[in-house]
């Protein structure tokens, strides 16, 4: 359903992603963990071509794209089958919460403004921000902005939602409400790939946890296995660090 094969990305001489293979079934949730600068975010950004992979094969739903030969139609196709949640929310600054969620339905799906706004209102209900429909991003807390960001992704009805460290930019007080919303989505069988440092979230929600280092997947296993009995020394060392004492929140 979603398959990445041999995804490779170089920035100049530096190989950031070195042949990543990953696949998810519908409704599956993969959490990607690993030290900073190991290409986790780049991997997500390659799936919708915010970064152009140098090589590899991407399959999302019924669309399969050879990264090296991707046309602009392929790229648009991938983007319309995926949704993305940004670390810094990246809400459209000149649009209200409601308009942020409705934008895709109007522009990409061609719905009338009225219908798009009605559907956006339903999503606002689901994310518990119905009272903020007419608020602009600048007037919302970080947590609220990120929930709108997730609402915008939900509006896409995408094959997969890609979460790029969704709680890393948040003040600690807002982290829980965003994770709660993500758990709600998980319970609704939303397919997702989540890059995060929230180990507790990974434990609770993930079907598979992927540990990445140096642009490669070192280890992949269900959380019960990866957290209690990691096979690779690098995984063990990473987990020792992040789980030492009180597990640090997303840093």
């Amino acid at each position: 359903m979603i398959a990445l094969k041999g995804i490779t990305k170089r920035f100049g001489e530096h190989t950031v992603l070195d042949g990543i293979d990953l696949s998810l079934a519908r409704g599956e949730i993969i959490v990607v963990i690993g030290p900073s600068g190991t290409g986790k975010s780049t991997l997500l950004r390659c799936v919708n071509f915010l970064e152009r992979p140098d090589a590899g094969q991407l399959t999302v739903g019924d669309l399969s794209v050879d990264a090296a030969r991707a046309t602009s139609d392929d790229i648009l196709g991938l983007r319309r089958r995926t949704a993305f949640v940004f670390q810094n929310y990246a809400l459209f600054a000149h649009k209200t919460a409601l308009e942020n969620i409705a934008e895709r339905m109007i522009v990409v799906e061609g719905l009338s403004k009225r219908e798009a706004h009605a559907r956006a209102r339903e999503i606002l209900e689901r994310i518990g921000l119905a009272d903020k429909a007419d608020a602009y991003p600048a007037a919302l807390s970080g947590g609220q902005q990120q929930r709108i960001g997730i609402g915008r992704a939900m509006a896409a009805k995408a094959e997969v939602i890609l979460f790029d460290e969704p709680t890393s930019a948040l003040d600690p007080e807002w982290v829980e409400e965003v994770l709660a919303l993500m758990k709600q989505l998980a319970a609704e069988q939303q397919t997702m790939i989540v890059v995060t440092h929230e180990m507790q979230f990974a434990r609770e929600v993930a079907d598979q946890v992927v540990f990445m280092e140096g642009g490669r997947i070192v280890e992949q296993a269900p959380p019960s296995e990866l957290f209690t009995n990691p096979r690779d020394e690098r995984t063990r060392s990473f987990l020792r660090k992040v789980l030492a004492g009180n597990a640090p929140s997303d840093a």
């Binding site: 919708n48 071509f49 915010l50 648009l76 983007r79 319309r80 995926t82 949704a83 993305f84 940004f86 810094n88 990246a90 809400l91 459209f92 600054a93 934008e103 895709r104 522009v107 990409v108 915008r152 896409a156």
Partner: peptide, 10 residues
Amino acid sequence: SQTEAAQSIG
């Protein structure tokens, strides 16, 4: 990020 957000929704 505004451009990327727009691209990400297709």
